[in-house]
Design a protein around this nucleic acid. Structure first.
Lengths: 395, 395
DNA sequence: TGACATTAGTTCGAGACTCGTACTTAATAG
DNA sequence: CTATTAAGTACGAGTCTCGAACTAATGTCA
């Protein structure tokens, strides 16, 4: 509710500067005149703001666009060489890093196998920093995505059943690592849930781009969700929203790893899927699913098993859709290699289960971002304060 | 993301004025010094803003508060006689009206039996306007709560199975009615879902006051929900979020009015409850539930039936909590007279079903606002633009 | 009782910002 | 080569916030 930039006239400038940045991010390189029209600011104001951003290194002029009558405008573009954010993911079997520039371009993207150790992550962070940030770019923030419950402060890990994490240790460690590397004015460090990060990435860069209301589901051993409403993540009171794996939904007969019956992931998690198709797990969920998809081409029994899984997926999406009314549902994780083998039955179940006649079935899409989704979303989250006016580049 | 007040320095003033109003609303009468501290504005600025609001009739000085050392402050309070909003509810068997002043005080509250006709509502609106608005108060907006799916534009009724409503007719009719009554600068007219309105009311005035993340559930023949996240309603892409009645959750054996199996309301709606306790429906859900509660005092069979219903309620809340992570869940409608007869088993089920060890069970409370909840929330929604700076009182 | 400390609120000038208008600049059309 | 069109800039007016200095009102304590 409060003004992001601050209450005085300087705050006003910050907010207007942020509006210019957002316009550039959304519409690409634009002339001052176009920016004025898009933001509603006066031409003169835009001129001053652009000059400030230019001398801060955040934007630069491009070659002019000729053609039409009249004096040609000189387009201004966000400058990737200026400002970047770092996104990281620490998972049980790999770590990823993405460096994202202000223009939304991925500058660096790297994944390494790992064992979930904080040290792995810090090493990767160091390498990514050296390779893609260095002394000439300004790092405005870093966010780590983790498969854990993270409190609303975006620092404190409350519960990480699969990682040895506790409290704000990870955030602090990363902060000191970055400080040691000499990252200028201490960049903001945050920790965030991996499904939330991936959801954010899908809504800004991936399959849900352009949808203000999206739901992201990732299938691994468990099932996680990230909810985007009005372009922002829904966090819940403690920061735990989107923990859909144990929704009491499926067969009462299905026993879940948590010891209870009827959890959704006991019907649609990786192990449930493997039981349906009577196959065994390989080294990663993705490779496992690829093997299943391959077998499905020739094995009707496997296809039938996936059909049952798909119906369970559809049932859960029906549930979530009636609560959240998303425009797009993106499926990631092991669902991606299975594609329509799972999505088609899910769509059919969903059609049968729409809450009312007026409701339109949300579009079901597959994630296009792959393994870097969470790291990318983490980076995008770190860019947030710049685009909202909370952080001032020009000072 | 955009500044609510506008981009120029006048917009800045509007936003700061709104901040002062919000502070007064939240903390009650305050001196200029207290306002300065709370809003972060300079004393001088607050002085000017308060003077403006005073001459606009929105605030007034109260008798001074003596006691402490130093010059005593002169508290300023929101002035109920100045600015009001109108909230209405059109339901199948009654209509309600609430007039709410800027200070959050209910100026008028009236309910009448009805038959769901638009004409009933317009008549009540006229009467409420004459009685509590008249020529001396300024009406800033009116909102009608309806048991229907309303699009995100807050005007268009998309689906109203129990009312004869269609499109934006209701909003237009109310607008012309108010215009005929001579309501100054045309007040904004909106239409909104009744459960959403009630949820908003509970989070601002009722059992969930102070909770930024709340979930409201109302039990009638169906079950509806309203979701508040970060103090704002979650609407979904089309405006249909919160349609929880047909979540595929309960026994597959329970047949729902919609023709499908397993809908939540087929287990916990009024008729399902009556079937469990083997009693018949009276004229309203509330009176029916009162009769059931009375019988439960002496009839163990009824208590057992309510226990089963309560477990179903708890299961649904477990589902919703794992998705939304609310701090408080408020139950309204027919659940209120049944109280702990339903809530206790619901709490037990919920405890068994929490998504993770780290999660804390949301508090389950009963609605305290009764039949006027929706109308009150509607009025509060109409007050929103004033408190956010979208609407300027001083011009 | 009277000087003093303390807190509230106002006055005033400086500084920052946006805006509209007028002006300059750079291209195309004829 | 001139007219036209549109982009960008310079400038002055108007609005706003802010801090410092100042005035006002009260309790404290000698």
């Amino acid at each position: 509710m409060d003004r992001p930039g601050g209450a005085g006239t300087e705050g006003l400038r910050r907010d207007n500067t942020a509006a210019v940045l957002r316009s550039l991010r959304r519409r690409g390189p634009s002339t001052r005149a176009e920016l004025a029209k898009d933001t509603g600011l006066a031409k003169a104001t835009v001129g001053v703001i652009v000059a400030d951003l230019q001398s801060a290194g955040a934007v630069a002029e491009e070659g002019s666009r000729p053609g039409v009558r009249g004096r040609p405008g000189r387009p201004v573009a966000l400058r990737g060489e200026g400002v970047v954010a770092l996104g990281l993911e620490l998972n049980v079997d790999y770590t990823s890093a993405v460096v994202l520039d202000l223009a939304g371009q991925v500058v660096l993207s790297e994944s390494r196998p790992g064992t979930g150790e904080t040290a792995d992550l810090l090493a990767l962070a160091r390498d990514a920093y050296t390779a893609a940030v260095g002394d000439d770019r300004r790092l405005v923030g870093a966010t780590v995505a983790v498969p854990a419950l993270v409190r609303g402060d975006n620092r404190t890990v409350a519960w990480a059943p699969n990682l040895r994490l506790d409290g704000a240790g990870l955030a602090d460690d990363l902060a000191t690592t970055l400080a040691d590397l000499g990252a200028g004015p201490a960049p903001a460090v945050r920790v965030s849930n991996d499904a939330n990060c991936a959801a954010y990435a899908e809504s800004h860069h991936g399959a849900a781009r352009g949808a203000a209301h999206a739901l992201y589901l990732t299938g691994t051993v468990g099932v996680g969700a990230g909810i985007v409403q009005d372009g922002e993540l829904v966090r819940g009171s403690a920061g735990f929203a989107g923990e859909v794996g144990h929704m009491p939904l499926g067969d009462a007969s299905a026993v879940c790893g948590c010891g209870r019956h009827g959890c959704w992931e006991a019907s649609v998690g990786l192990h449930a899927m493997l039981a349906e198709v009577q196959m065994v797990e390989l080294d990663t969920p993705l490779r496992t699913a690829e093997a299943v998809a391959e077998r499905a081409a020739t094995d009707a029994g496997v296809r039938a098993g996936l059909e049952r899984v798909g119906r369970g997926v559809g049932l859960g999406i029906a549930m979530l859709s009636s609560v959240l009314d998303p425009e797009v549902v993106v499926l990631g994780g092991y669902f991606v290699p299975l594609g329509d083998l799972v999505l088609d039955p899910a769509r059919r179940t969903l059609d049968e289960r729409l809450a009312s006649e007026a409701q339109v079935r949300p579009e079901l899409r597959l994630s296009t971002l792959g393994i870097r989704a969470a790291a990318l979303g983490a980076a995008e989250q770190s860019l947030g304060p710049v685009l909202s006016g909370e952080l001032d580049l020009t000072s």
